[in-house]
């Protein structure tokens, strides 16, 4: 796995504890990590807390990074592990709770109807479909589809073999298509 574009020298700077290197990493990955966490958790407050903890972990561990650390994969791994740890502590299965919410409630951040319309019908349906997927399928689509991680990086984040990742990605993608087709069918039937 090569160095991600724009990451050159970043890990070295972080290993030296340079604030400028941290700022570069923060600028590069803050929004992407937040989007990943938001779509994973479906809760803005939780996503913000997990985002903060992810960056604190980086700050605490910056000097212990190895020179060959893949920073993007490292950050996504930490963010995902924090979310999984959080899930172990909650009594309510957020997946089931989310599945029970009406489609318009899937907008994770209290987005206004205007925003939804602006985001486009396709995007809204995709967000809904993502929200209905079990976590293990949602996360693989978020990593590869939305955030553009390579298959090797995503396999590293999810602790999967490349082949297992391909299979899970294919299954997840098929599930999204099924959900979208079903929604389309319902729309055609309803007046």
């Amino acid at each position: 796995m090569g160095v991600v574009e724009g990451e050159e020298g970043l890990v070295e700077g972080l290993r030296r504890g340079e604030a400028t290197a941290f700022d570069r990493a923060y600028t590069m990955y803050r929004a992407r990590l937040f989007g990943f966490l938001l779509r994973l958790t479906r809760r803005r407050d939780l996503a913000e807390d997990l985002l903060q903890e992810t960056w604190i972990r980086l700050a605490k561990n910056a000097r212990r990074l190895t020179p060959d650390t893949q920073l993007r994969a490292w950050l996504y791994t930490v963010a995902r592990n924090l979310y999984l740890s959080h899930r172990r502590w909650v009594l309510v299965d957020l997946d089931r709770l989310t599945a029970l919410t009406p489609p318009k409630g899937i907008a994770p951040d209290g987005t206004s109807p205007f925003d939804l319309a602006a985001a486009g019908e396709t995007g809204r349906r995709l967000e809904e479909a993502l929200g209905r997927l079990p976590i293990k399928y949602r996360e693989v689509l978020l990593l590869v589809g939305v955030d553009g991680l390579t298959l090797a990086e995503a396999a590293q984040v999810l602790s999967l073999s490349p082949e297992a990742l391909r299979q899970r990605l294919k299954r997840a993608r098929d599930m999204v298509e099924e959900i979208l087709s079903a929604a389309e069918g319902q729309k055609v039937r309803s007046p």
């Binding site: 803050r30 929004a31 992407r32 937040f34 989007g35 938001l38 779509r39 996503a47 913000e48 985002l51 994770p108 951040d109 985001a119 396709t122 995007g123 995709l126 967000e127 993502l130 689509l141 590869v144 589809g145 939305v146 553009g148 993608r173 999204v176 298509e177």
Partner: peptide, 13 residues
């Protein structure tokens, strides 16, 4: 599907 996912709007804190 992957292309459509890549087009989803970026979210930020």
């Amino acid at each position: 599907v992957l292309q459509a996912l890549a087009q989803l709007p970026e979210q930020d804190v």
